[in-house]
Design a binder for these strands. Structure first.
Lengths: 276, 276
DNA sequence: GGTCATCTTTGCGGCAGCACAAAGAGCGCG
DNA sequence: CGCGCTCTTTGTGCTGCCGCAAAGATGACC
């Protein structure tokens, strides 16, 4: 307890994490993550005590596709993108993850390699645990393993929904949906609308929805003229989210259930309710 | 023990399942499913004892999209397809499942609805358990909950791989891959090549890979002329799988890992090894 | 064996989105 | 302040795939 977090080698392994008194924010971060939902305070302290805090600079890889999956983690601060690279060099951007979200559940299992690279798009502080340690938590706190399953089920539903969108919707609809999703996980309300606080190039958006940067650029220009969005370089603000929702098409229950933060927020609420 | 399986109402709920002496095949089915991998015989008997056997006719729905997710199951005989229907009526075929494969892990959790319909493409016998019962198994046999997580992780990787394929590959490649996959889960070696033993219309294939039946038909015709495949109505035989593999493109490690039967077979082997 | 529903093939026109090129704009940095 | 990198816009041609239509093939069923 009370060990200092500061680290002389910011690129490498961080220090062991101190108690919640020294770092109440770290405690809040663990408590806010769905993997540990429903755990009582002592258990959370146990979990937090086993964590290390890693610092990753912009552009650095938090985990690397193809490496042995040995680490489970939760983003404490910063944002990262999940990217798959095909052997012919094409990139697919699966999704962005932000503070309090976890990655690498796969590390609890043996013999897996990471199927994707997690790249910091901002400087990140990452709480991390060896995979074996996560497996211990599964055994010690059965709730955690249920939570993990819960999360994987939700992720699977999200992915299925996006798979379906890719098959049935066109670029315009997918882009509208992607912007709304991004605004919900990384948005900030300002005077003139809702600003997406991520650095998003047209190319990133294209990789995210499966299109070319040219098509994305054209579509955004069109929307800008229509007054739906307003964009600077790498910044996008939604001026009329309702218009985008309409363009995205009727958002059915399936897609509803697939909005990650919503579904997982609900999970948190459920767990807390069960606990109370 | 020893209760008769035969059921007077084939469309509806089946009877409670008897012991392994009366139905060694049912025992083998449960033992072969990855969810129950690594369980000792008594535990498997416990599991099997809680099962019901349901009969579903061709075209019948085993579970229905939108219904409350209350049942977990394993296919004992027959095959089924997982389908999502969008609110505008379009169908997406996610995958086929065959004997000894499970569905509805989601039923172990509360408050979920099935995100897809599971439709029997052949008459099916389905071992099934109430979701609450599966949750009990999680608590009683921690291995089972780990297995469940394992399976979801693999499914997620598969789906990610297919998502990526959809973004980066074209119809020809996706079709080649789909045929190879189908051949691996539902294929049979015959004199002239490998026959896919599923009834597959051009339209089904189209829904599976995200294309139109016209494009699928054209592509298959082309391959038939080239001698790569040979097709009757609803039957497809691969005469030169190697040629299709080449068309599918270099099959990288990622896609390797995503071939469901392989990955799960490996899981079975691993578990047995651990056990032994 | 004939009938009929269903599946399959093939032709043709259209278009959404890709690919390349080249010019313009924003922003950091010395 | 101006240099230069990166991101963005816009034009043009192209093409893979769709969408419809209509004819042909297959197999089931009476």
């Amino acid at each position: 307890m009370g060990v200092v977090v500061a680290n002389s080698k910011p690129r490498c392994e961080g220090g062991r994490v101190g108690g919640p008194e020294t770092h109440p924010d770290l405690y809040a971060c663990v408590a806010a993550n769905p993997v540990f939902a429903g755990l009582p305070r002592p258990a959370l302290l146990d979990v937090l005590g086993a964590a290390r805090l890693r610092f990753v600079p912009v552009g650095g890889a938090i985990v690397r596709q193809g490496d042995e999956a040995g680490m489970f983690g939760v983003i404490f601060s910063g944002r990262a993108k999940m990217v798959q690279v095909t052997q012919d060099g094409r990139q697919v951007l699966l999704r962005y993850i932000v503070s309090d979200q976890e990655f690498g559940l796969i590390a609890a299992l043996h013999g897996f390699t990471y199927p994707l690279t997690l790249e910091a798009v901002e400087a990140c502080q990452v709480l991390c645990w060896p995979g074996a340690r996560l497996a211990e938590f599964f055994a010690r706190y059965p709730q955690v393993s249920l939570n993990a399953l819960h999360i994987m089920v939700i992720r699977n539903q999200e992915l299925q929904a996006r798979y379906r969108e890719l098959l049935t919707d066109r670029v315009e609809q997918r882009l509208a949906r992607a912007l709304l999703r991004l605004a919900s996980i990384a948005g900030e309300d300002v005077e003139a609308g809702r600003l997406i606080t991520l650095s998003l190039t047209r190319e990133s958006l294209a990789e995210l929805i499966g299109a070319t940067l040219y098509t994305v650029s054209r579509t955004l220009s069109q929307w800008e003229q229509a007054g739906h969005v307003q964009s600077r370089r790498e910044r996008i603000m939604l001026r009329r989210p309702a218009a985008l929702e309409q363009l995205a098409g009727e958002v059915d229950e399936l897609t509803q259930a697939c909005l990650a933060p919503c579904a997982l927020a609900e999970l948190m609420v459920t767990r807390r309710h069960v606990l109370a």
